[in-house]
Design a protein around this nucleic acid. Sequence first.
DNA 1: TCAGAAATTTGACTTGGATCAAGCCCCGTT
DNA 2: AACGGGGCTTGATCCAAGTCAAATTTCTGA
Lengths: 242, 242
Amino acid sequence: MRNADLEEIRDLPLFRDMDGDHFGNLMRGAYHQNFPPQVTLIEEGRPADFLHIVTEGAVELYAGWNGRETTMAVVRPVATFILAACINDAPYLMSARTMMPSRIAMIAGSDLRATFARDAAFAQAIVRELAGCYRSVVRHAKDLKLRASRERLAAYLLRHARGSGAFDLPVEKRTLASYLGMTPENLSRALKSLGPDGVSVDGMRVTITDAAALVAVACPTPLIDGGDGCGDLSYTGSSSNC
Amino acid sequence: MRNADLEEIRDLPLFRDMDGDHFGNLMRGAYHQNFPPQVTLIEEGRPADFLHIVTEGAVELYAGWNGRETTMAVVRPVATFILAACINDAPYLMSARTMMPSRIAMIAGSDLRATFARDAAFAQAIVRELAGCYRSVVRHAKDLKLRASRERLAAYLLRHARGSGAFDLPVEKRTLASYLGMTPENLSRALKSLGPDGVSVDGMRVTITDAAALVAVACPTPLIDGGDGCGDLSYTGSSSNC
DNA sequence: TCAGAAATTTGACTTGGATCAAGCCCCGTT
DNA sequence: AACGGGGCTTGATCCAAGTCAAATTTCTGA
């Protein structure tokens, strides 16, 4: 594994505070590979053999049932995913596929479990990580249960407008639709319907023309939209999606 | 605090393996109180001062937004709740109220954080607990996103039929409806509509008259319905709802 | 640069589920 | 036994969102 990659991984909150030797051991037993787009990395139901870390590209976490499929999250560098399944040595609850050419590091789940039993600092980091992930899914569930799809979309746009009033959607619209729990057709119409509420769309480019009006639709609250960290569709940086 | 209660709490997977002195210290700083029904124990948004443990009765975890409200889980003895908020020293994401006369133990969040930083076995137990809770909410989200309400209801009934074909609903129907993300009216109609699919209802009593037919509707799968532990509406025993 | 494929949008239509409004039933109280 | 209240059911209606189909734009690869 390249030194630059090792440093990036070491910098993650998950690994930052752990013992250096332990980190070294963990990484010695790790793989690091390039994958083309649209490759399935993980299939739900399979035993959780590896903790995955995206170092380049982007990975979609999704779940299926009875012929239907839904996007649960998108993971961007540098971040880990499916930590929880590895810790519990339980089957993955979500599948994962690359969305573009990606570079993925894989750490054996057994090594992970052995290490966190020995390294208190690592165990603490895992605790914080998992607690953050848990809260992130709770927010997602609240979003789904408490808001209508138009409101979810409005809130999503506000979460991503951060300061500047214009930004590019981080994923294809059909993926966004799936993440928000609606059909692409409905997303398209909902976007248009938000025109009078201060949203203008051109391709992937979204401009908030009237933040106050949009806020009135979305009623954003940190208890749903807030981030202590990981989770949302475009999250980039040092956190994980379990 | 009564010795019997202490032992019950000590028996939880969360506290079982930790150092005896640490457990003692934790409990010395803890409260244990009786509450009448319909008392609000926690309001979402408040700082997470205490880890709560139900030793008797039942507690509803719910969340609100913009005048709407939804039930997220019901916690029964002996189990903890809102662990994640305490660990992260972050605001509660859910409110909690007693559903009947209940007895609740409360452990100061600061004690909790101090102890898990010092006690590796405790940290490990927390890791497992949180991983289980995380997976439980992921299942809930998958249930909401992938199944229609009739299918969710069918799956719920199968989860609770465990062996015998008849059981009593563990909560009022309106609470069940809210948990399943539908209105009481819709639940009532959905229950009736499952008649031809092997469900007969009399008040709180549900009888599965044709499990195969119901399975055909629900398509149950461990990746949504499975339990590695906590979460569901009627879960009783040694686990938690973070 | 162009052909073909994929993604998005639009339109017409259907439907699952919400809403509103009675009415019913169970149950504990007086 | 009558009363009252809450929860549950039923019926009528409405609306958000899904489905199906076709047109259009965007992207991609030869």
